[in-house]
């Protein structure tokens, strides 16, 4: 029996999306269902999982309150610290930079983002470690400064690791800014500062918000930076998860934390999207 044109079209569409659909179901939806089921279970005596239907794991979440606290405090602070450093750079690239060099300068910002975060964080173990900056400080007479394994070290690592991701969306929103608005503002007698506060800054808000949201969300699941620069003293939810799954083998409790982390990410994401709707005209960001 010959297939109708519409039927054939549908069959082709089905074949095109089938592999991706299967991948999403098997390696995203099913694993997520699995951790939800695990989070309702109990820890088996020898570690791992034992079926049950209880909310005990969720009731136990306060046991890891420190990890949640560190993450929920340092992620937004880290994102804001990124913003403070990123804004002038994005502004310079979009408004001041020589157009001939612009592409190169922008590329130089993006490239580190796609190189190993592990290696880039390792570099800071060097710099902040006892033979790095603290060693230099002793030369000028400041003794006993410890930088590694402090919240400060984690913040430096965060700013370093996520700066490119903050610069890009702000750059994109500043780049499409209509220069005539700035001229109009100046012609009307506004000082540069008021032009910036009254025109440039409000118009770049979509980029600022995209950047802050992106960086905050990625930081919520961070593991490497607190692990290497916080040295087990400043730990995030990600570090608690690694501990629970690979060391103490308390899978149900770990699953409950993982589910909670996803919920936190969703709440932050929805909040950011609501804000973005209010500040109209957000454009999708190129991460490349």
């Amino acid at each position: 029996m010959a297939m109708s044109a519409a039927g054939k079209r549908r069959a082709v569409t089905g074949l095109l999306v089938a592999p991706a659909a299967a991948w999403l179901v098997v390696f995203l939806v099913l694993p997520f269902i699995a951790i939800v089921v695990f989070s309702l279970g109990e820890r088996a005596p020898e570690g791992g999982y034992q079926p049950a239907l209880t909310l005990a794991q969720y009731m136990n979440l306060p046991a890891r309150a420190a990890a949640f606290w560190n993450t929920l405090v340092l992620a937004p602070i880290g994102a804001l610290a990124c913003l403070v450093v990123a804004y002038p750079v994005a502004y310079y690239l979009a408004v001041k930079a020589d157009p001939r060099w612009r592409l190169l300068l922008v590329s130089l910002v993006v490239v580190p983002f796609w190189t190993s975060l592990l290696v880039r964080t390792y570099a800071w173990m060097y710099i902040l470690g006892s033979r790095g900056i603290p060693n230099l400080l002793t030369l000028v007479g400041i003794e006993d400064v410890r930088l590694l394994n402090t919240p400060f070290a984690v913040l430096v690592g965060i700013v370093y690791g996520y700066l490119p991701l903050m610069i890009m969306p702000i750059y994109v929103s500043l780049e499409k800014l209509d220069r005539r608005l700035l001229e109009a503002s100046a012609d009307l007698g506004a000082r540069p500062v008021s032009t910036f506060l009254g025109v440039t800054l409000p118009l770049s808000m979509p980029g600022v918000m995209t950047g802050v949201a992106l960086v905050t969300i990625l930081l919520l699941g961070e593991y490497l930076i607190p692990q290497l620069l916080g040295g087990g003293k400043v730990f995030f939810i990600g570090n608690a998860l690694v501990d629970l799954f690979l060391q103490s083998r308390n899978w149900p409790f770990g699953s409950a934390i993982a589910v909670t982390l996803v919920l936190v990410v969703v709440v932050v994401l929805l909040g950011a999207m609501r804000l973005a709707y209010r500040v109209a005209g957000t454009r999708q960001v190129d991460l490349v």
Binding site: F32, I35, G221, A258
Partner: peptide, 21 residues
């Protein structure tokens, strides 16, 4: 939505969920 989730859900959760499943 599913593609967005694949990008937004932290790697640490993707790792754990895949392991458990």
């Amino acid at each position: 939505g599913l593609f967005a989730a694949a990008i937004v859900v932290p790697g640490v959760v993707i790792g754990i969920a895949t392991l458990v499943a």
